[in-house]
Design a protein around this nucleic acid. Structure first.
Lengths: 183, 183
DNA sequence: AAAAAATTGTCTACTGGGAAACAATAATGA
DNA sequence: TCATTATTGTTTCCCAGTAGACAATTTTTT
């Protein structure tokens, strides 16, 4: 029940790279060092690597902000998307959040048990499953929305507000998502 | 043994959001729609959400590039960091990659079994474990390095080279990592 | 020197999440 | 119409990765 994922585990933190204990921040490509600094080499240019670390760091912040509410990132996204797209098909929801259908089944059922969402088979396609929020679900969104907004308003860790905005813009472009917030 | 993670699962793809089947890309905040488009609402401004999707997309590209080599992102990062930092402590490696120590133990042992890395207890601290690549490990790096370089040279999916570079720069700044590649 | 506290790697148990196969239904083609 | 193919949600099995406790060892305090 402890908070968990935006579809990705992580509860507390502990790791988070950032500059290591050592202090000498000089450029020093020497090998065989038992001291504290680490050289990432080509990895510092690898998009996937950077994104992974950034995501982890971002999530740590997320859990800090939502500490009081027992919520996982994945649940939050489902709630938000359902709020914005009532009646959306389960598979469509999964695809839009890049969650596998199999896993979405689990999440969504649990949330149904918790009384947050409603699932029903549409008449025109008996294979499908239409989802929408219950009153309780909407109420949850009403509580979580503002917390998310405040969390985001803070901007990313080591970046200025401008840089944060630019970073988000680039990510959105890369994902082909258009902005749909007041920002 | 099928490729897997940069510390994060994902083998094939299937999901990946991107614009949905529908075509009307117009601004249309209507509710209750059974058509193909999805509104992300505030999520399109949520850093954690964007980072997660971007990472997934990036990983899909990773697996495409490394299809031939049976390698997981996590393994690659360990190989690269070990190549750059021979003799690094196991815990230090874990911290620098934001992988939990417990998990690092598993990874590193498996790689030891595969003959890629060497583990030995240093004399000055019998709790610790020093890691370095074997000849085979170095050979592996020699093969994978160029593939990674080529993969990265391609730039991110929907972005220009300039935008890709800027995105990486911002991520690096956010993570407090300095660039250590020819780029 | 002894005792308390911190570190380091490891173990066990548990969770998030993917792969593949499946049944039910819908769409398509002959 | 009937047979084939595609879609949708689900089930089962498995793996990546975390949490928390642990033993062995430093390190720090007294």
């Amino acid at each position: 029940m402890g908070g968990s994922a935006w579809p990705l585990a992580l509860r507390g933190q502990e790791s988070v790279p950032g500059r290591a204990p050592g202090n000498a921040a000089v450029d020093d490509p020497r090998k065989d060092r038992p001291d504290g600094t680490v050289h990432y080499g080509p990895l510092s240019e690898a998009m996937g690597f950077l994104l992974r670390l950034a995501q982890l760091k971002s999530f740590a912040g997320f859990f800090r902000s939502f500490e009081a509410e027992d919520i996982r990132p994945g649940e939050l996204t489902v709630l938000m998307v359902l709020h914005e797209n009532p009646g959306i098909r389960q598979g469509m929801l999964a695809k839009s959040l890049s969650i596998k259908r199999a896993h979405m089944t689990k999440m969504v059922r649990q949330m149904e048990d918790e009384g947050l969402i409603l699932r029903r088979v549409p008449e025109d396609d008996k294979r499908a499953m239409e989802l929408r929020l219950t009153e309780a679900g909407e109420a949850r969104v009403a509580v979580l929305g503002p917390i998310l907004a405040e969390h985001e308003a803070g901007g990313a860790a080591g970046l200025s507000q401008t840089e944060t905005a630019e970073l988000k813009r680039l990510l959105r472009k890369m994902l082909n998502i258009r902005n749909g917030a007041s920002g």
